[in-house]
């Protein structure tokens, strides 16, 4: 078990390292920050001084090593725009994105799993057919369009919910969170629902497929033959067997939501990382882009690690393979 975890961690480090190369090169190939940062009427000497200060005159490989060395010390450069360490700018925006992503994934699970179970247990029911049809719509409709419709309907027509911004925040562990205040929570609902829609439908369909696969198996019949209550047959015997694909998707989708909530954050002007990255790309704020990408990669690697560990908790047969030579 421990060996498997260590091996998994080593893989994670390799992934991170490979990613620094890709990120660094990709970022250094696009555009020239000097043009953006220095006013066009700065003279040659001024220009050379800034270039040197930013280390942009060195060969690419030296720049990379400097970048890597600094990154190892938690320094991903200073934002050209905010004049603050890029990592700090990212981390300031992280809570907003994180609470949006967590809310969305929770909504997706709470909606998707029970509906998927229902549709799987009664595959021929009318309600099941309705659920399945609606779920196709759910992940075919473009997110930004659904977001706009939500704003139109709940924000403008009915006026029930605010349609932009993060609202009031309150502090917890030294971080500002919107979900702690009533106003913040109200602001959170629409973007979270918008983000959750696709994943709710995905989880729903996966759950249903899992139930359809497991339901005819003998161990379900045997569980019933033991006289177990139906709630236990479904809640334990069936659920635990279908959770592996569902957990995989939840993990991957959680990463995706954090990384690519760009659209939803833009539509609802949610001040998270997605909005930050769009703004930073527009002004070619390279340290921010780099820091953002590195943060996202780290995030994905961590999530995948957690998912792998969850497998071993869910399915004992996975554990054995991990212990093998």
């Amino acid at each position: 078990m421990t060996a498997a975890v260590v091996r998994r961690l080593l893989q994670a480090v390799m992934v991170m390292l490979a990613m620094t190369v890709i990120v660094f090169i990709a970022i250094n190939v696009i555009g020239d920050p000097v043009d953006i940062l220095i006013s066009p009427d700065a003279d040659q000497i001024e220009r050379a001084r800034v270039v040197q200060a930013l280390g942009l005159d060195l060969p690419l490989w030296q720049q990379y090593l400097r970048f890597l060395w600094a990154a190892l010390h938690g320094d991903l450069g200073e934002s050209y725009v905010y004049n603050e360490p890029a990592i700090r700018v990212i981390l300031q925006r992280l809570p907003a994105t994180l609470e949006l992503a967590v809310s969305a994934i929770l909504i997706a699970i709470v909606v998707g799993v029970p509906l998927g179970l229902y549709a799987g247990l009664r595959p021929h029911g009318i309600l099941s057919r309705v659920i399945m049809t609606v779920s196709i719509l759910g992940f075919s409709l473009p997110t930004f369009w659904v977001g706009l419709v939500l704003i139109m309907f709940f924000g403008v027509q009915l006026g029930w919910l605010p349609s932009g911004g993060r609202g009031q925040t309150a502090e917890l562990f030294g971080v500002q969170w919107a979900f702690l205040t009533k106003d913040g929570l109200a602001h959170l609902i629409l973007p979270a629902v918008n983000l959750a829609l696709f994943d709710a439908c995905l989880i729903l369909r996966l759950t249903r497929a899992g139930v359809a696969e497991v339901l005819p198996l003998d161990f379900v019949k045997f569980a019933r033959a033991k006289g177990l209550k139906e709630s236990r047959v479904i809640g334990v015997h069936i659920s635990k067997n279908i959770m592996i694909p569902v957990v995989t998707i939840i993990g991957l989708e959680f990463g995706s939501i954090v990384a690519f909530s760009v659209v939803t954050e833009s539509v609802f002007s949610w001040p998270g990382m997605g909005k930050l990255i769009i703004d930073s790309i527009n002004v070619l704020d390279r340290p921010i882009i780099t820091a953002y990408l590195m943060a996202i990669v780290a995030f994905f690697v961590i999530i995948n690690l957690v998912v792998d560990l969850t497998y071993t908790a869910l399915d004992p047969r996975v554990r054995l393979q991990g212990e093998g030579p």
Binding site: D218, F219, N241, D315
Partner: peptide, 11 residues
């Protein structure tokens, strides 16, 4: 049941 490989819940 017939197949003891399938009768017990694997997880």
């Amino acid at each position: 049941f017939q197949d003891p490989m399938m009768t017990l819940n694997p997880v």
